[in-house]
Structures are given as structure tokens and as C-alpha cells.
Write a protein that binds this DNA or RNA. Structure first.
Lengths: 255, 255
DNA sequence: ACATGGGGTTGATCTGCGTCAATGCGGAAA
DNA sequence: TTTCCGCATTGACGCAGATCAACCCCATGT
């Protein structure tokens, strides 16, 4: 009915707490995502400072919300596994998707502004996040200059990313938007060690459309068109990119 | 005729430079914009810390760039007077406007990400900015916790603002976009002490259109339509909002 | 195996906005 | 003042993408 908090693994099982094997702890220093996530660019000892503050994880089931618009803001979240969308409920009841997020990415930055989240974060598949209490992060970045600097970069990167989406929505045609979307996904999968050419979409056509400012029928039609042209292979949510250059060519020739 | 900036008392008169009366220096603590700008929410003594680092101003003539995409990033800029647009040059030569900026707002946050600016900042009228060397800002916010926290809020606010634009571009029709645009401008003018109902647009129809993902003819037509409906008065760049509620009503009823 | 339902595809038609083109206006310079 | 030029307005027409509608596919539960 409501999104009940799954019991926290670290703190809910006192039986485990004596064992404390390093690899099993939620620590950044041993996390395979450390090159993508908050720790990027930090030294080993600095990452160990992060370990101090990222002490909780949270599991979110597919369809449930990590947070909702209006919720009090207390923490940032680093995605450890799974897939999320950011979305807001519009006046007319539709929900507008404002972003998709994958492992290693930080969610919740919008909440800092007024201490309340500005959008929902909904899991598109069963997911797990690292909870980063924001007050502690500020404390830590007060101690560690490079962490402060890096955190600024993370926020700035988010601003640049959003401006990229604004450009996409403001100046591109449907086909270009979808090409840009696929290339962007591909690139993000690559830097996570997955295939650049083959992946599963975690979101529906409607969610893609909402994000790109298109209707689901248009998204579907363009997928089919790309397929006929040999640019991609589509089978439901499974995508195979056949000609990256073909997709990129769509972007270069303005309109 | 046009909104001429009152000549700046502080820096324009070299005869004064030896005197160095505190009130005449470029200091945040005596700046009329301090309630809108970086100093917001800081105590008097904390603001005085800011005075240390904001020691330069820069004048930008109408049409000139404060910075360009690709320029090395070194400083943030607080607008002291004037009006700017952010814009990027697209592959096809058009330039896409990604934002408009007025006094008290901070520009350049996009540059932190990769130490280069991601867009141009072009003055739409003769303008003046306070230069905030970023390294010094980080240094200062390392010292002053509340400054650090506030700076995070400034960045987060920018993220929220961008997401608002994404929603506008992703889900609104032309009339709704323009209504939202006018209401947004009006609100920002109000908080700067100007009339909410009457203002001069500093940008052309084409720039508005670029920002809103519309063509200039569409912008023009909708201005005319709004005028016929009695919602606003338009005379070239002069706008008078006659029925705020009428404009707001356009937004509430989804589509 | 079968039924069910949510997502996806595809076609026909409609329309909001883009495009192209002509005209008007007002501020800057001579 | 007159000329000029960039910007704005307005109209006629076309098209990309929305809308409406039918059908299909596949995953899920019984």
C-alpha cells in the first residue's frame, strides 16, 4: 500500500554485527563503483573517510519510491544496483519523467535547495542505494578539502547534464532526441563495464516519451524506423545498437 | 527610453579611489542585492568574510560575452546589474538559449564540473558582475560552515530550476510555456523590488523562442493572442501583465 | 495449458506549430 | 528630418508528431 522501508541489513541484524568482515561492510573503499561514484578522484585515505559516513544501505523494490516530492531532505543516495527514474506529478495527473539513474550516480541533490525533495525517485527494478546523510557529508567535506571540491564537481555535473537535456528538448526533433537518448544510455552502460551495443531498457515507451517530450506511439514508431534502417535492433525492451555512427550522424546534421 | 543603469558610484570615479570609504568598496555587506545573492542567510560577520574574496568587478557591454563555452573556469560571477543569457552554439550554427539571468543571480556553476565553461554568458544589456574566484570561495566555505552550506543550496537551486525548465519543455504547449515564462520573469522582478506587472524584456522574440523551444513567430503570435484576450499588454519589448490569474489558469489545467 | 492484462506496434486522421513570405515599426545614425 | 536595419507582426500553407483506435505480443498467475 505505502512504500514501507525494507529493514536495513546492516543495523537490523544484531547477529552479524560482531563479524564485521571488511568486504561485507558497506564501504566505498571496496566498492566496485568507486570510480564512478562520489569517491572518484579521491585518494585511498580520503575514500576511507567516506566509509565513515556511508554506513547504511536501503533496498527499494521495483515500483516503490526512494523518496517523494515534498519529503523532508536528509540524505543523498548513491545507487549501488538497480535503476531509477526521477519524476514529478503534474497538475493534470500525468507524471513527467525528469531523468533516469543508474549505479554509481547520486540522487537527491535537488533536495538541498529547500530541505525538501523536489521530485520522486522511483525504482524501475529492485534496487539498492547507499544512504549518505547530508549533514555528515558536509561535515566530512569540511574536513577533507578534496572531498568538498569533488562534491562541487558532482553537483556541477548534474547542472551540465540538465542543460544538455534542455538543449535536447529545446532544439531537437523526435528522431534526434531518441538517437541522443540511446547514445547517452549506451555510453553510461559502457562506463559501468556493460556492453555499449546491447542492453535492456528498464523503462517503458511511455516513460521514455515523457522524458523526451514525445508520446509513446512516436517513440515506438521511431524505434521501428531505426530498426528498418538497420541502425538498431529492437525486441521489446532489448536494444542492440548496430550502427553507432548512423545514430551519431542524426545528431550532427542540425535540422 | 531604455533602462539605463544608474552610473556606478564606486568604480567609475577614479578621483575617489584613494579615499576607500568602506561603503564605496565592492563589498557584499553593503550590497543591496545581499538578500538575493550569495550572502543570503549569512550573519553580518560571515558576510564580511565574503567581502574578502569578492574583490573585483567586471563590466560587460551589451552583446559581449562574460565567458564562452570552453573557456577555462576560474570564477563564478554574481550579477550586480544588467541582464544575461546563457547560450550554446549548436552543430548547425544556431544558438540555443539555456537561461536568462538577472541581478543577484550566480553564473558559471556549470564550469566547476570539468574546469571549463559549458556555455556562453552573453550580456543582453550593459552589465556589471562581481567576480568570485572559485578557489577562494572554496577556501572560504572551508572556513565558514554556513557559507559552505549556503553555497550547496545555491547549486541545488540551480538544479531545481533546470528541472523546472525540463518539465516546461517536456510537457507544456506553446501558450503554457509562454505563460510560465512571463510569470517566472514577473516573480523574479518582484523579488528584486521591481513591478510584478510591468517590465521590459531584454531579449528578442527569437531568444525567448530558443529558450522555450518555439519559433519567434509563434512567440509573437501568442503574445498577440494573450493581448487580444486581455491577459497582457504588449508593446514591443514592454510587457504589462493585466491578469496574473488568467496566465496562471493556463498552467493549472494540464493539457 | 489457458486466461488475463499491461505494454508495444501500427494505421488513419487531425492539428499545433513550423516554414515561408510580405509588411510594419521604431530606434540609431547621418 | 530622413534613411536604414534589425526586430516584430501577420497571413497562408505544410508537416511532424499528437490523437484515436485496433490489434498483437508476452509475461504472469491459476
Amino acid at each position: 500500500m505505502h512504500d514501507s522501508q525494507p529493514p536495513d541489513l546492516m543495523t537490523a541484524q544484531p547477529a552479524l554485527k560482531a563479524i564485521d568482515i571488511p568486504q561485507l561492510k558497506t564501504v566505498c573503499s571496496s566498492c566496485s563503483l568507486r570510480e564512478l561514484c562520489l569517491p572518484i578522484g579521491l585518494s585511498q585515505s580520503e575514500i576511507e573517510q567516506l566509509d565513515q559516513l556511508v554506513y547504511t544501505r536501503r533496498r527499494i523494490k521495483r515500483g516503490e519510491n526512494l523518496y517523494r516530492a515534498g519529503d523532508e531532505f536528509a540524505s543523498l543516495y548513491a545507487i549501488r544496483s538497480g535503476f531509477f527514474k526521477s519524476n514529478v506529478l503534474l497538475a493534470d495527473g500525468r507524471d513527467q519523467v525528469t531523468g533516469f539513474h543508474m549505479p554509481g550516480e547520486i540522487m537527491g541533490l535537488d533536495g538541498i535547495s529547500i530541505d525538501r525533495h523536489a521530485c520522486n525517485a522511483t525504482a524501475l527494478e529492485d534496487s539498492e542505494v547507499c544512504v549518505i546523510p547530508f549533514a555528515r557529508l558536509e561535515e566530512a567535506s569540511h574536513q577533507v578539502r578534496s572531498l568538498q571540491h569533488h562534491f562541487h564537481k558532482v553537483m556541477s555535473r548534474e547542472i551540465v547534464r540538465d542543460q544538455g537535456v534542455m538543449m535536447l528538448l529545446g532544439s531537437m526533433h523526435a528522431e534526434e532526441r531518441l538517437a541522443a537518448f540511446l547514445l547517452n544510455l549506451s555510453q553510461r552502460f559502457v562506463s559501468r563495464g556493460y556492453s555499449p551495443a546491447e542492453f535492456h531498457l528498464r523503462m517503458t515507451r511511455e516513460e521514455i516519451g515523457s522524458f523526451l517530450g514525445l508520446k509513446l506511439e512516436t517513440v515506438s514508431r521511431i524505434f521501428s524506423k531505426f530498426q528498418h534502417e538497420g541502425l538498431i535492433g529492437v525486441q521489446q525492451k532489448h536494444i542492440r545498437i548496430r550502427r553507432v555512427d548512423g545514430l551519431r550522424a542524426l545528431l550532427d546534421r542540425g535540422d
